[in-house]
Amino acid sequence: MKIAIASGKGGTGKTTVAVNLAAVIQGSCLIDCDVEEPNAALYLNPKIEEINKVELPVPRLKEDGCSYCGLCARLCAFGAISVLPGSAAGKGTLLVFDHLCKSCGVCMGLCPERALKEELRAIGTVETGNSCYGTFARGQLDIGEVAAPALIRVLKQKAIYAPVTIIDAPPGTSCAMINTINGVDLCVLVTEPTPFGLNDLKLAVEAVRKASIPFCVVINRSMGDDEIIEQYCRAEGAEIAAKIPFNMEMARRSSEGGLLCATGTVFRDYFTHLAEKVQKT
């Protein structure tokens, strides 16, 4: 089963829940789909065994054949091509702006001279390996790149799945998040008992419902009174699968890259219970 850990808001403890869940389920798989800020490895210390570049095709001029008619530049919806016609003084120029290109193939497919070919350009990496808890995969988008959904699609193909796969989703309800939760069996929405947490939980619920994915809620940093979230969940018929209390020791340990589920600690129970619950749904 594939379980995505998501949250409308960043910093609610999504990664903390994801890595600790993966650690209490023996032989699990963890996929870090937060490709702008992949952080799960800081906690699970996986040994990376394979690094694959993720590449997208961009157009390039073949050695000859271009008449500099400019059709490709006019057809490109993204303004990714510029064609400057030649003059008596010399040949024309064709410029490609790689960052604007979405690899749709219009320019190459519709060139009357068939003068364009495609070349692969790296936008990031997908890494796979093993931690002592199971298999691990993560994607990392190069700085300044914007094609997170494309990278996530490749990452989800390359990962080595286990009977239980935990997917750390990007924060928010962006296109990248929608691509991440596409095809999972359950979404765990992590929130905190603040007005921010509630506001963003509502957005996340809207997104998972639109994608028709079952979900449950985890309240992190509970300070006892969680009525703000509980009231909403009651009204929406959403299950609260766990409450993780706010605790200075937990905050410190997590901030230093420690897992909270080391054997013999009181914190471990929160995650073993949550693991049982989510596997039952």
């Binding site: 990664t15 952080n39 800081l42 700085i143 300044g144 901030s255 890259g257």
Partner: peptide, 19 residues
């Protein structure tokens, strides 16, 4: 904030402000 993830991400975002 003084957490490994936050520090890691601060460094990434500073690459962007540099650029």
């Amino acid at each position: 904030e003084p957490g490994l993830s936050a520090i890691h991400d601060m460094k990434r975002v500073l690459e962007l402000t540099d650029r």
